[in-house]
């Protein structure tokens, strides 16, 4: 897509130059973009050839692009002064280290992942971190601006009240049961757990804990529990549910 813009810019600066774009499938993602490409082809006089160049060979001072026009099946050897490679966008080289330091999730391509693609598109899974622009994925300027505005609004919401509310379901440790094995410290994705080296007991930082429950399933002795959602409570809920269902069935 940006290739079209570059080609048009080139034509603006060098009106008697010739711009040729080799492509196989052009996809435009956005309002009025299709018209933009049509304008480039028609008004900008940019030649679009369907076919991927196979080789670029140096012949004297010229570069020769070998290609086939897959629509006509004709061989092409295009002499040109300069070849510009239209590369795809990749995450910046330090992005992965940053993601590791902030514990933000990344997708298969190394871009930062949002908490939810539709409902929480500007937030990361780590509270307090918001995403904007190409950190999240390849984006053009309008998309980046709108996402950044959204992220800024989210930050303002955070600062608008004197207190920050937090979900009451967080982890706690039963000190009598904890054996100090430290498995939960390594498991916690939010760094919310700390080992008391003297007492050999783990404590929970209640501000950092997000109540994800990773430590609860990791704890071998059952010392880690979620407040208001202990194993005991869940067991009881299930048995009440089964019991009432059985009664209802009997009545029928």
């Amino acid at each position: 897509m940006y290739m079209v813009k570059h080609a048009l810019l080139y034509k603006e600066h060098v009106p008697d130059g010739e711009a040729i774009v080799f492509s196989i499938d052009i996809r435009t993602g956005g309002k009025d973009y299709e018209e933009f490409i049509t304008r480039a082809k028609e008004e900008g006089n940019i030649l679009y050839i369907r076919g991927k160049p196979a080789r670029i060979i140096k012949q004297g001072d010229d570069l020769v692009v070998w290609c086939i026009n897959t629509l006509t099946g004709k061989q092409l050897r295009v002499k040109c002064d300069m070849v510009v490679l239209s590369m795809s966008m990749v995450p910046s080289s330090g992005a992965l280290d940053l993601a590791k330091a902030l514990r933000i999730h990344t997708n298969v391509h190394g871009f930062f992942s949002e908490a939810h693609p539709k409902l929480r598109p500007v937030e990361s899974l780590v509270p307090g971190f918001f995403l904007a622009g190409t950190a999240q994925g390849p984006k053009d300027i309008p998309d980046t601006v709108s996402q950044a505005s959204g992220a800024a609004a989210k930050v303002l919401t955070l600062f608008s009240s004197d207190e920050i509310s937090h979900s009451p379901i967080i982890a706690c440790v039963n000190e009598d049961l904890c054996s100090g094995c430290g498995i939960c410290v390594a498991t916690c994705p939010y760094d919310a757990r700390e080992m008391d080296e003297r007492k050999k007991i783990v404590s929970v930082n209640e501000i950092l804990c997000e109540g994800c429950g990773a430590c609860i399933s990791a704890c071998p002795s059952g010392a880690s529990q979620q407040k208001n959602l202990t194993d005991n409570q869940i067991d009881n809920m299930i048995s009440v549910l089964l019991h009432s269902n059985a009664e209802a069935l009997e009545r029928e």
């Binding site: 991927k52 160049p53 196979a54 070998w66 290609c67 897959t70 004709k74 061989q75």
Partner: peptide
Amino acid sequence: CYQCGKCTSVCPWFQVEIYDYP
């Protein structure tokens, strides 16, 4: 195949200029 046509321009027949090998 997504019809990019790279195969055609690296084919030895591409070097035979009077002949188009699709």
